[in-house]
Simulated scan of single mutants.
Amino acid sequence: MVIKITPQQAKRVNALLRKLCANYDGGNCLLLDDGEPCVCVQSISKYGLYCNYFKNAVLPTDERLYAEVMKPSGGKRCVLCHQPFAPRAKNQRYCPACAAKQKRLKATERQRRKRASASRF
């Protein structure tokens, strides 16, 4: 099954491919190599994701791109930054970066309320 991508996503996919793919060797694919060098199919494609190894092993390292490409209907947008992300739970509201910030803010507010109630007595 081919997953369609936009030209902007294709640029990000190719950059990720050159940087992190273990089977990419100077434009050739080591998985397809049977004695003769074979061109990496994913590096020459502009409109879709064709390599299963790339989809399963390399693409999940970039969470935003993974959310845009793999989960267009099931993906969500962060309440704070409005960036798409792949939720790990059905009630998740924030992307991982904003979740850490929000957790810190909630903890600060909780401690402020706790100290205010303790000082009244």
Rank of each mutant, 00 (worst) to 15 (best):
F85H: 02
T61Y: 13
G26E: 05
R88P: 02
K55E: 04
R104Y: 10
V39L: 10
C78Y: 03
A97H: 11
G27Y: 00
V79C: 12
Y94G: 02
T108A: 14
Y66D: 12
L65H: 10
R88N: 11
L20A: 00
T61H: 14
P60I: 02
G75W: 04
A100H: 05
A86K: 06
P60M: 07
A89K: 12
Q42W: 08
V58I: 15
Y94R: 00
L59M: 12
H82P: 03
L105V: 06
G26I: 01
H82K: 14
Y94S: 02
V39F: 07
C98A: 08
V69M: 03
G35R: 06
R104L: 12
D25I: 00
C21D: 03
Q83K: 15
A107R: 13
K106G: 04
E109C: 07
K46D: 14
A67R: 03
M70T: 08
V39Y: 03
L65I: 10
Y47V: 02
K101S: 08
C51T: 03
C78M: 05
N91I: 05
K46M: 10
Y94V: 00
E36A: 06
F85E: 00
A89H: 11
R93G: 02
Y24T: 01
Q42S: 13
G35S: 05
Q111P: 02
P96S: 11
D25T: 00
L105F: 11
A107Y: 07
L105Q: 09
Y50Q: 02
N56K: 12
E36T: 02
Y94M: 00
C51K: 02
A22K: 06
R110M: 12
